[in-house]
Design a protein around this nucleic acid. Sequence first.
DNA 1: TTCGATATGTGATGTTATTACATTTGTCAA
DNA 2: TTGACAAATGTAATAACATCACATATCGAA
Lengths: 134, 134
Amino acid sequence: MTATQELTKNQSLVFNALARADGPLSAYTILDQLRNDGFRAPLQVYRALDKLLDYGMIHRLESINAFVACAHPHSHSHGHGMIAFAICEKCGQVSEFSDDIITGRVREWTNSNGFKQSKTTIEIRGVCANCGTA
Amino acid sequence: MTATQELTKNQSLVFNALARADGPLSAYTILDQLRNDGFRAPLQVYRALDKLLDYGMIHRLESINAFVACAHPHSHSHGHGMIAFAICEKCGQVSEFSDDIITGRVREWTNSNGFKQSKTTIEIRGVCANCGTA
DNA sequence: TTCGATATGTGATGTTATTACATTTGTCAA
DNA sequence: TTGACAAATGTAATAACATCACATATCGAA
Ligand SMILES: [Zn+2]
Ligand SMILES: [Zn+2]
Ligand SMILES: [Zn+2]
Ligand SMILES: [Zn+2]
């Protein structure tokens, strides 16, 4: 799965809701936005979110129970590096970046401890540059 | 606040529940464990958890909505370094560690992007050495 | 066309966290 | 001692987030 047009109807609706948003959305916010498109139940949203997560098109922000469209949609799964998110607690803006050194240090720890990593969450909460100067 | 004996009754009960557990507990699991001690409502747990988080005696694991007693209770707030958690999805065991290089790289990103960090979550999900060999 | 895999619709339920308000307890200064 | 304030507690209700169970529909390959 690489392109939007291969998504199913519900998956497209959910992805487009996230893509046009200026920040992360909760599943229930997405549900409310899609009522007019026929959405009636949370599961319609969660099922689409699960697929979009599989496809690497969106990310889940664990610390705020919300979802965001991937900011780097053309770097497939971000190589194999870990992704970090800086989340502004004032305006909700999310910056997505990856750092090979962080990725390497985490891998060193997991290797030397025999830990088989499956998914890693790195989320920085705080106040972004715009909101900090206000 | 540095020692257990300065905690209030409810705070002590919640902290001890976490301290004797062999892994992270959800707030409602703690509530159930403390029914016999007079706990009746979620808020009694959440209020104690908030204080214990303030005191740095416990941590919240964002990716599994659970809480765990700090594994390094004598290193006050872990210096000022960020803490990473490796969470086994098989047995629930949590390993807590900090890495100055990761801390430094995150700080470099926030500094160069004008982002004022308040709290950072690093959680590695996977399978621990014990469970991997089974 | 028939079968299986995938996707969808819907209601009910389960899990996690907060709001609102009343009461109690501890601290300290007048 | 007492009044006043801060901190802690008790309780019910509600909000927010997520999944289960079951029925139906859609699509592609055999
Ligand atoms: Zn991304
Ligand atoms: Zn901001
Ligand atoms: Zn700790
Ligand atoms: Zn394990």
